[in-house]
Design a protein around this nucleic acid. Structure first.
Lengths: 336, 336
DNA sequence: GCCACTGTGTGAAACGTTTCATGCCGACAC
DNA sequence: GTGTCGGCATGAAACGTTTCACACAGTGGC
């Protein structure tokens, strides 16, 4: 159907080996021959068949990246970082979106394996699944993104959520708040639980009793609407709480709307801290103080570790990289 | 390295042809043989090499999707819709992000061609580029997403932006506004220009003079910050304008913040209409009236057209599908 | 004039599948 | 017993590359 290397060879009057050399090792071919082959290639509109190339070569220069949710800016930035690094190092990235569904995760792992990718970057739905172990056993390096493997039999890159909670807590305590509400998603998520741990540590470090200072409200969904409703219900008869720490920015924005709609001034009556520092945080009705994660860095680091393991499997030692988050102060906690 | 079909055949004591049949035509194989082969497959951890399969088969069941910007929720939804349909029809989608850079678009087109994808869905950076025509000439069907080809030599799916502008205009005029500001990105973008055209049509249809009613402010960037600054500058000494129509929701959110910060009530002093109906529009400080595009539908329709052309190239006739947008009324224009 | 060498090109093997013509075997009809 | 047929399995060819051992022809040293 489409022209093959053989057609090109015939037209240029050379052997197939020579055409292949023009494609892959141009320096081995005399200038005149190379020109003739190039001419034949463009005349025929030849495009290399990568299936054949990869079959013969036995190995591909591509890695897979499976994320939980491409709609989440966090993963979008991670992907961007990983792509940039992979590109520099001569690898292509195959992007897959598991959408938090085990069936999709499985299907993509299968596809990536069939394509013989060199390695896989993944935020697994469940850490320590048999499927992933099997992949590793068969010799495909994997790196966990935003997760850690307690058994440490692969590399991983994550952000220290305990520190994030501490930063938020210390900031609010420093502003004089004595009743802090932690509005969170399911505490079964490590992320949410760790942030609470950090918050408690900050309170304890200030010489206060976490049990007295912190109040936890756990919601199932982590979006603005849920948070808005929860905040409204809560604030109907509560004037003691002067600060809210939310497990993500969407929830913080919901709380902000609830506060403004019930006539509270932010930050004077209520201080709000979010998490993630999403793009819109700075542009909210009251710009949001938030905890920023080095998202692109996560992707970059993960890709680097993976490529390192792919290229030097024998000397490679697994690492657990842990980034520190950063506090970004805006008007929702303090006006300068 | 990893076990091949041959290893499986040896271990199961059958020929390679039989193993292949177990994989692709299980019904042609006797139950007992099939079981033996399956056992060998799992014992060895065999995974089919898709390069070899595709090379032999000569054709793949995958299509490429090249979008401008995965960070934009619009394209995210389009991708989702396309993936769903492709999946139902037995095609896999290879997702590529051109990031508005011609070099990346070119590279991905090259990669997709080398992989011999059956077809390509693309929002091209430039309509009518030679590269895309060449691809089509070589027999790879393409469908334009959110773009139209004036020469109509391929299918396309887009949304009618003129109607979107009309909807916004008619809504604001119906509320009694007589001075409307259109805050837009570059009018060189068809999207932005068409929305203005629609707005003018609505004004004319109401028997008014577009030149008197509409005021256009064109900014280079279409984000919240730019819009916020533009709105602030504008409103410093302008009380005549009572309504703003923004070319996207991010700009509308910027205007909203500027309005609230300068003490205007929304919608009483200023009505605001956005465009795109992004997820956060409903959760803004004042929920935003916006124009919703059937984003997932766009992706679904595009994938359907493409697969149709791939599967029945001879009977296929190119179509230009044009969806109608929809007005979503919220508090930023009228309180019920 | 011979040797070694370099630069360039050749041709065949191999990669792991799928497909297809062929063959084997037992069952059933006559 | 012969002929036919269906169900299953086989083995080889083919897909389009890359690689590698080899060949060939100049070149320069001696």
């Amino acid at each position: 159907m489409s022209p093959s290397i053989k057609d090109v060879a015939e037209r240029a009057g050379v052997s197939v080996g020579t055409v292949s050399n023009v494609l892959n090792h141009p320096e081995r071919v005399a200038d005149s021959t190379r020109a003739a082959v190039q001419a034949a290639i463009s005349a025929l509109g030849f495009v290399r068949n990568s299936s054949a190339a990869q079959l013969r070569a036995g190995t591909s220069r591509s890695i897979g990246l499976i994320v939980l949710d491409m709609a989440n800016p966090f993963f979008h930035d991670v992907a961007r970082g990983a792509e940039d690094v992979a590109d520099e190092l001569g690898y292509a990235v195959v992007l897959c979106n598991s959408d938090d569904q085990p069936s999709r995760e499985n299907r993509y792992l299968q596809v990536l394996e069939e394509q013989r990718v060199r390695g896989v970057l993944i935020t697994p739905i469940e850490v320590g699944s048999e499927r992933l172990d099997a992949l590793r056993r068969r010799g495909t390096p994997t790196v966990l993104v935003d997760r850690h493997d307690p058994r440490v039999n692969c590399c991983s890159v994550a952000v220290d959520d305990v520190v994030g909670g501490e930063l938020a807590g210390a900031h609010l305590l420093g502003l004089g708040h004595e009743r802090i509400l932690y509005l969170t998603g399911p505490l079964g998520l490590r992320q949410c639980a760790d942030r609470l741990t950090g918050l408690r540590q900050a309170v304890a470090a200030a010489g206060l009793d976490p049990g007295e200072v912190i109040d936890v409200v756990e919601e199932r969904a982590m979006n603005a609407r849920t948070a808005h409703d929860a905040a409204r219900a809560r604030f109907a008869d509560d004037r003691a709480t002067t600060a809210v720490f939310c497990a993500n920015d969407l929830m913080a924005l919901g709380v902000l709307r609830a506060a403004l709609n019930t006539g509270r001034r932010v930050p004077d009556d209520l201080a709000i801290v979010g998490y993630d520092d999403i793009e819109f945080a700075a542009d909210a009705a009251v710009p949001l103080t938030s905890i920023r994660q080095p998202t692109q860095q996560i992707g970059r680091a993960a890709a680097q570790l993976l490529v390192e393991e792919c290229d030097h499997p024998e000397t490679h030692a697994h690492q657990q990289v842990m980034f520190k988050p950063e506090l970004v102060i805006r008007d929702s906690t303090t006006r300068e």
